[in-house]
Computed example of a mutant assay.
Amino acid sequence: MRRQSAELARYASNGVPTGLGWGLYRGKQLQVALERVTATSHSPTIAAHSPPLAVTIDSLLLFDSGKTTLKSGAEPRLHAVLDLIRANPDKRILIAGHTDNVGASVANQKLSEARARAIRDWFVNTATLPVTRFAIQGYGDTRPIAGNETSQGREMNRRVEITVVPDSGTH
């Protein structure tokens, strides 16, 4: 189910495949239901030397355009990530905000950092987690994953990446 939930999240970020479109696609409703189910199931822990586990969420699912206050519908998505964080109590969490290239780079940088901070604060306040478990980073428009020439590319670039960072193995 986690794989299907991740697939629906990719569709939300990257666009629905043509064969699933035509106005009949109900992925958003399915994604919310899958997130509820997977949030109550056992979350995997990360081995000390495994690669980092990252969750990418479309910023517009969490925030209104240009805003840093979480939308009311953002909490189910964050609760699913919170379960992963709780399942890995000895790991640090990196929250990185990204934007498209619309607007001034300085404003995009500040926006992406403020959004990362808002998510960190939600985790800290909701789950009473220590703020020291989290690192935040705002990348603004400096790390696009798609071209900014199209609206679809810009949508993909507006994202938040939450990464569970494994131990370095050094003591």
Rank of each mutant, 00 (worst) to 15 (best):
N125V: 02
Q152M: 11
V165H: 12
L84C: 01
D167G: 11
E7G: 11
G153P: 08
A114Y: 02
E35T: 10
V106S: 13
A116Y: 05
A87L: 04
D141G: 10
A74I: 00
V164N: 04
V102Y: 15
L24Y: 07
K67Q: 08
G169L: 12
I85E: 01
T132V: 11
T69D: 05
R2W: 02
G15Y: 11
L53S: 09
L82D: 00
M156D: 03
V106I: 06
D121M: 01
K71H: 07
Y25Q: 12
I95Y: 03
L94H: 05
R86N: 12
R92N: 11
G169Q: 07
N157D: 00
V160I: 15
V164Q: 00
N14S: 14
E7Q: 12
P52S: 13
T170Y: 13
Q29R: 15
T56K: 15
V131G: 12
R10E: 02
V165W: 14
R133M: 08
D121G: 09
R92Y: 06
V124I: 06
Y11W: 12
D141F: 03
R158W: 03
V37E: 03
E113L: 12
A116P: 02
T163M: 10
F123W: 00
I85V: 14
G103E: 08
D167F: 14
S13H: 15
L78E: 00
P17H: 05
F134N: 11
A127C: 01
G27P: 15
R158Y: 06
L60H: 12
T40G: 06
L78P: 06
I136N: 01
A47L: 15
A9P: 09
S105K: 12
Q152N: 13
E155L: 14
R2E: 02
R26F: 13
Q137V: 12
Q29D: 06
L24P: 08
I95G: 11
P144T: 01
N157C: 02
L70I: 07
T170S: 12
F134C: 12
K67C: 03
T68G: 02
N148Y: 05
L78T: 01
A9I: 06
L20K: 11
R77N: 09
M1D: 09
F123S: 05
N157F: 03
S168W: 07
T132D: 08
F63Y: 10
L84E: 07
R133A: 01
G27Y: 13
D121S: 14
S72Y: 06
D64K: 14
H98M: 05
P52A: 09
V106W: 05
T45H: 07
A33P: 05
L62I: 04
H98A: 08
R36P: 00
N14T: 13
F63I: 05
S65E: 15
I93G: 04
F134A: 00
V81E: 06
A127V: 00
S43D: 02
Y139H: 13
T128F: 07
Q152I: 11
V55G: 07
T99V: 08
L20N: 13
T126P: 00
S112M: 05
P89E: 04
R77A: 02
R133D: 00
D141E: 05
E7L: 13
G153Q: 09
S13V: 14
R158I: 01
V37S: 02
P51Y: 11
S168K: 14
